[in-house]
């Protein structure tokens, strides 16, 4: 295996569908052992990028390597190193859960010696009682667990979870988080794409934000949040007055007599803002501040909702 510190390296990847530039020179690396978040609004190019890494989509230009193995020239080694949980609930209707897992392991050259590992996966993902059922008979959440097990049957050192918690209930989401954390703790590199930004904030060490096929940000989760130049002030006010003209554009939401202001950290000290609100005639009933979440940063960078 080539010596490299990167689990996945992506160099100048371009992909065009007709006139649409799905990926426009994307370049970054995911380090070994990292819990990495890949975020972006719909149409940002996340799925295309994952497809390219997994060998499901052909890139027009660029290079992708998994654990140093070029995913075209050394596709066997690159694919053996990678497990991908697809976003859609796809399954083979002909076989039981256990059969599907054994078949999937077989594609990777893993035979009976992997069967105990498959049984462990069934146990850990609470699938043991359904191992003999065909996947068609399972609920959506159970199907999602099977997809995760399928991605892990060959014990890949790098795992990509493409929106694993989309459409699952809170309990399963928690279970999947626990499982992903455990995988990571055992040394697996985990790459997560998600629409739930608190999920990325909670789990990921570094985050890349893609937008319209370009990399918008790539930093540690803490740094990305700290970089945000704003903070939020929620005020509950009494009185029917008009806000000072300088504050009106800062209002991001109004609800039942309270409003939230998005303030520039350096230029709009909270003390001065409160003074100006009082000066406009309001009585301040309640004050709360909050630091930006990943969602705020995301909106700032992409101008869209996740």
């Amino acid at each position: 295996m080539p010596v490299t510190s990167d689990a996945i390296s992506i160099e100048g990847v371009r992909k065009t569908y007709g006139t649409l530039k799905a990926l426009d020179g994307v370049e970054f690396s995911i380090r070994r052992g990292e819990f990495f978040g890949l975020l972006g609004p719909n149409g940002a190019g996340k799925s295309t990028l994952i497809g390219i890494i997994a060998g499901l989509v052909r890139m027009d230009a660029g290079r992708v390597a998994v654990l140093g193995h070029d995913n075209r020239r050394e596709y066997r080694a690159a694919r053996r190193a990678l497990g991908v949980v697809p976003q859609e609930l796809v399954f083979d209707p002909f076989f039981s859960v256990r059969e599907c897992l054994r078949i999937q392991a077989g594609y990777y050259g893993c035979g009976r010696e992997y069967w105990p590992w498959i049984e462990r996966l069934l146990d850990e993902l609470d699938l043991a009682s359904k191992a003999g059922a065909t996947i068609r008979q399972l609920s959506g959440g159970m199907k999602r667990r099977v997809l995760i097990a399928q991605a892990l049957v060959h014990k890949p050192p790098v795992v990509i979870l493409d929106e694993p918690t989309a459409g699952v209930d809170v309990e399963l989401r928690r279970t999947l988080w626990r499982f992903a954390r455990k995988l990571h703790a055992e040394g697996t590199t985990v790459v997560l794409t998600t629409h739930y930004l608190e999920e990325a904030e909670e789990l990921c060490q570094r985050i890349a934000i893609l937008d319209r096929g370009r990399l918008k940000a790539l930093e540690g989760t803490g740094q990305i949040l700290a970089r945000h130049p704003f903070r939020f002030l929620r005020l509950t006010l009494d009185g029917d007055f008009r806000l000072p003209p300088g504050l009106e554009p800062c209002v991001v939401s109004r609800l039942n007599g309270s409003l939230e202001l998005k303030l520039k950290r350096e230029e709009q000290p909270i003390g001065e803002v409160l003074e100006s609100v009082r000066g406009a005639g309001f009585r301040i009933v309640d004050v709360r501040t909050r630091e930006p979440t990943l969602e705020d940063v995301f909106l700032e960078l992409t101008g869209e909702r996740a």
């Binding site: 060998g55 499901l56 066997r76 694919r79 990678l82 697809p86 796809v90 594609y107 990777y108 399928q150």
Partner: peptide, 18 residues
């Protein structure tokens, strides 16, 4: 065609098979 329609062809396409 069944694998394509069901989407499960991805399992095969991602596998290290020539």
């Amino acid at each position: 065609i069944q694998s394509k329609m069901m989407g499960n062809l991805v399992f095969l396409l991602m596998a290290p098979l020539s």
